[in-house]
Nucleic acid binder design. Structure first.
Length: 490
RNA sequence: GCCCCCAUCGUCUAGAGGCCUAGGACGCCACCCUUUCAAGGUGGAGAUCACCGGUUCGAAUCCGGUUGGGGGCACCA
């Protein structure tokens, strides 16, 4: 089995492309086959190395690797069929075009865009399917010479035979199309650039691809490809069309309505293993109720034949949940390592490891770490700027209760021995103080929490106090006390 | 407009004629745990398996039609 992924570097790695890549990768791994990456950069106007880099980097980030093709953007191609970038394979396309021309299966078309547009409009008016009228098929030499004299440059069209094409799709079963409904389509532009439908067929043959697994949006293109394959005398591969990933309104997932670039999810802090696990289930399931799988386990279970036919909506809530599951499974050290790029360099590695237990259960995306525990590294004044004085008020009680709690906490934090400056002891002492003051523990803790973390919602209070230490804790309580005074005056 | 594909809780899905008074997960609700928020635990609401016919002793599962949704019809990929 030889499968391939053929992304076009005209944009960053798209969710749909990522999942198609994943399915191809899993199919190859499952069968012990070969996985090829081919860069479809025939659209030179829109293709860039930056996009190629984004695609390759993010594919690697997901844990997807390939046996043949460029391993690095702009790098050398590896494999017996190199090069794997279509912009470097133009000679092959040119010679195959000649073969088609010589066999009479393709012909030059001299029509201008305006002429084609006029024909199209006419057909539309007559409610006919819009397709090429074959004006240049068998064009008399005299007319051709006139076009040449005019300075026109011809495109090359493939002549589609009016026949019924059938194929057995790996996921959809028998599919049938009537090619007489198709027009003769352009395979080489008049500037000499070969087009997608043509090069995809040529390269799949040249690279000995046995299974073409791609998005359902290509299902209707398949009869064109099969016609081309037959005309060129190629071996027909098996085709498998996987369902589309959908926007919330069930239309094909698009940039307009959803976040589609993998790098955006990566930047938010989704773990690649969670993302891949999620992606795999968008259109496939192992047929059991298990749902947590590593890439290797997925490869073990994956079968194209079990891929669904219907499209699947991309559900963020589910992704978030899965990401949390994977985050919680990480050790302190592992999670700290993953968090490294989201935390300022000034925070030492050891401190970061100490923070992990305070955030692990609360973290949905790695990128949320700052919002959760940024108070641990932000300056006291910054933390104080996060809240308005009235947030210091406990649920049951106003500024007076807040002031009382803060003052008692301040005294207690000042008096406690260094050895006792721990979450356990501090909690004990604060509970006793709350009792003594006749205030419910929760109400007593709220002002302290806000003073120290700057938020009403935070990681466990006493572990937070221990984390930031005596000095900063007291300084923040002082800031809070000052805010209460300002509030009272105004 | 023409062609093709699809159709199980809001969402992702299990289900390949009797195991289904349709299972799991996410989300939602309630309760428990609890210093807040999470996480965790328990329970709940939520799908006449799009609809209509047929085949069969028996259909979510097979067949036909209808409806709905989607995709494709470029000198883009």
């Amino acid at each position: 089995m030889r499968v391939r992924m053929a992304p076009s570097p005209t944009g960053p790695l798209h969710i749909g492309t990522a999942r198609t890549s994943l399915y191809n990768f899993l199919a190859a791994r499952h069968a012990g086959g070969t996985y090829v990456l081919r860069v479809e950069d025939t659209d030179t106007a829109r293709s860039t190395v930056e996009f190629e880099r984004d695609i390759i980097d993010n594919l690697h980030w997901l844990g997807i690797s390939w046996d043949e093709g460029p391993q690095v953007a702009g790098g050398d191609d590896i494999g017996p069929h190199a090069p794997y970038r279509q912009s470097l394979r133009l000679e092959l396309y040119a010679s195959e075009t000649e073969r088609l021309l010589a066999a009479g299966a393709a012909y030059r078309c001299w029509c201008t865009p305006e002429e084609l547009e006029a024909v199209r409009r006419e057909q539309e008016a007559r409610r006919e399917p819009p397709r090429y009228n074959q004006r240049c098929l068998g064009l008399p030499d005299a007319e051709r010479d006139a076009f040449v004299a005019e300075g026109r440059r011809p495109a090359i069209r493939f002549h589609v035979e009016p026949e019924v094409v059938r194929f057995d799709d790996l996921v959809r079963g028998e599919v049938e199309f009537d090619n007489s409904l198709l027009g003769d389509f352009v395979i080489v532009r008049n500037d000499g650039a070969p087009l997608y439908h043509f090069v995809v067929v040529v390269d799949d043959q040249a690279m000995e691809i046995t299974h073409v697994i791609r998005g359902e949006d290509h299902l209707s293109n398949t009869p064109k490809h099969i016609a081309l394959i037959r005309a060129l005398g190629y071996v027909e591969p098996r085709f498998g069309h996987i369902p589309l990933i959908l926007n919330a309104d069930r239309s094909k997932m698009s940039k307009r309505k959803s976040q589609v670039s993998i790098s955006a999810y990566r930047e938010e802090g989704y773990l690649p293993e969670a993302f891949v696990n999620f992606l795999a289930f968008l259109g496939w399931s192992p047929g059991t109720e298990e749902e947590l799988f590593t890439l290797d386990e997925l490869a073990q279970r994956f079968e194209v034949e079990k891929v669904h036919k219907g499209g699947a909506i991309f559900d963020r809530d589910r992704l978030d949940h899965l990401n949390g599951v994977y985050i919680r499974a990480l050790s302190d050290e592992q999670l700290a390592l993953r968090l490294r790029s989201w935390v300022p360099d000034a925070v030492g590695d050891e401190d970061l490891v100490r923070m992990v237990p305070l955030v692990r259960e609360r973290l949905v995306r790695l990128g949320d770490v700052g919002a959760l525990i940024g108070f641990a590294w932000e300056p006291d004044e910054v933390v104080a700027s996060w809240y308005a004085p009235e947030l210091l008020h406990p649920r049951n009680g106003g500024p007076e209760v807040a002031r009382q709690a803060l003052e008692r906490a301040r005294a207690l934090l000042t008096d406690v021995d260094d050895a006792d400056f721990s979450a356990e002891v501090l909690e004990q002492l604060c509970r006793a103080a709350a009792d003594e003051a006749g205030v419910k523990a929760g109400d007593f803790f709220t002002p302290i929490r806000v003073a120290v973390t700057g938020r009403t919602v935070s990681p466990p209070l006493f572990a937070s106090l221990e984390m930031i230490g005596r000095q900063r804790s007291i300084a923040r309580i002082d800031e809070a006390l000052a805010k209460l005074v300002v509030e009272a005056v105004s």
